[in-house]
Amino acid sequence: MEQNNRTLYTILVFSENLAGLLNQITAVFTRRQVNIESLNVSASSIKGVHKYTITCYSDKETVDKITRQIEKKIDVLQANYFTDDEIFIEECGLIKISTPVMLENPQVSRYIRIHDANIVEVNPTYSIITKNGLTEDIESLYHALRDCGCVLQYVRSGRIAITKSCIEHLTEYLSEREQKYMASK
């Protein structure tokens, strides 16, 4: 994705689970006046390691500097940046719509079907739709429903991403670090 000659980069950061790290990471963006488009923090597959998925529009040079300055933080294990073709991406959208409008206008349920979305709650007042996918897919459903005049609330999650690489770099890195340290003893 491009915007004003800038690419949407996804930065994946792995860190120890210590208080205050999120602040340190976002401060690197603030100092360089780069806006964070989305941010997700969760557990990772390694015990005690947190994973940050951060997206921002930037040029390669800047995102490279940002990533290295993040990695420099003592408790950050690794930071890498990716373009969309290097990762699997997923986002989630939640849309609350008016049930009476949905019943009146057959177009509403048609859009939900076309977009392969799920209805997870129906009551006489409102219904809740969930939609997983890329930003464009979720936005497309939202815009269609909005045009039907039935949307009561809308929210979209930050991006989460997993690398397509066949090598699990972090796992290898950690075991290499431990081995080298043991060998030096």
Binding site: S15, I74, D75, V76, L77, L174, E178, Y181
Partner: peptide, 17 residues
């Protein structure tokens, strides 16, 4: 507050090279 004191010698942090 009190604790049992055991001297530490940290020379390795896995996230820090």
């Amino acid at each position: 507050g009190t604790c049992e004191y055991e001297p530490q010698h940290i020379d390795f942090i896995r996230s820090y090279v």
